[in-house]
């Protein structure tokens, strides 16, 4: 079988794998995006005592390989099987998809928290004081001033983190999940045709390229207020 025949025969499997990669990435990024603002605020403002466990968690995640984290959760949960069964959690941990998702959420939450914290620290104090002077309450200041600025500052770094997460999701294939790489290894083990790896590489690059375009468009919209040309034309109107 030549390379073209292989891709014609197996493309539905690769497509299936692509959807799995996107699903894993999207879900983990989404859950982390919901949790991380709260953690980032804690990291930026809370007392050192409150921060200590959070810092420990972030340092652990950043200091250990994501593969080791995945094995710790996927295989490690087996050690507590009786307890987990008792609590009715075993069915969750038995499923490799759940374990991969949990690992990725824990991982990207730590990174997103640190990135967003940087954004929060970068917000101009004067603008927060201006909000206070107008009599805004704390929640209003966060919602109208702090977070809009923080996300603008953090946007490029968050985009990078999402790409890293997408790439890291390929590790799910090691715990029998059929994402792009999982499918690729499966097809390779049947055909021993090396070209299938190149198709996988193209798929990953396409996902990255499309994501970068979307993210940049979003960034332009977010930063409308500092784009000089837009600013001038808005003034003229």
């Amino acid at each position: 079988m030549d390379s073209l025949e292989i891709i014609i025969k197996y493309w539905p499997k690769l497509l299936d794998g692509t959807l799995m990669t996107l699903k894993l990435t999207f879900l983990s990024v989404l859950v982390a995006a919901i949790i991380s603002p709260f953690l980032a605020l804690t990291r930026a403002n809370a007392s050192p005592m409150v921060q200590a466990p959070l810092r420990l968690y972030i340092s652990f995640i950043r200091g250990t390989p994501i593969l080791a984290q995945l094995f710790l959760i996927y295989y490690g949960s087996g050690q507590f099987r009786p307890i987990l069964q008792e609590w009715g959690l075993w069915s969750f941990f038995r499923d490799p998809f759940n374990c991969a998702l949990l690992t990725f959420v824990l991982n990207t939450t730590a990174y997103q928290t640190e990135i967003l914290r940087g954004g929060i620290m970068g917000v101009n104090r004067g603008e927060i004081e201006a909000g206070k002077a107008l009599g805004m309450n704390k929640l209003r200041i966060l919602q109208r001033i702090v977070f809009p600025h923080a996300y603008r500052i953090a946007w490029p770094a968050l985009g990078n983190e999402i790409i890293l997460m997408m790439k890291a999701s390929a590790l799910a294939s090691v715990v029998t999940i059929f994402d792009i790489l999982g499918r690729t290894r499966q097809i390779f083990s049947r055909t021993f045709d090396f070209s299938i790896y190149l198709w996988a590489a193209i798929l990953y690059l396409c996902i990255t390229a499309i994501f970068v375009l979307i993210w940049r468009q979003a960034e332009l919209r977010l930063n409308k207020h500092i784009a000089p040309s837009d600013h001038l034309s808005a003034d003229k109107k």
């Binding site: 790439k167 590790l171 294939s173 790489l181 790896y197 590489a201 690059l205 390229a209």
Partner: peptide, 13 residues
């Protein structure tokens, strides 16, 4: 743009 593990497989295989 490529997952590190994919690079590893490509090099190894």
């Amino acid at each position: 743009g490529l997952p590190e593990i994919l690079t590893l497989f490509v090099v190894y295989n």
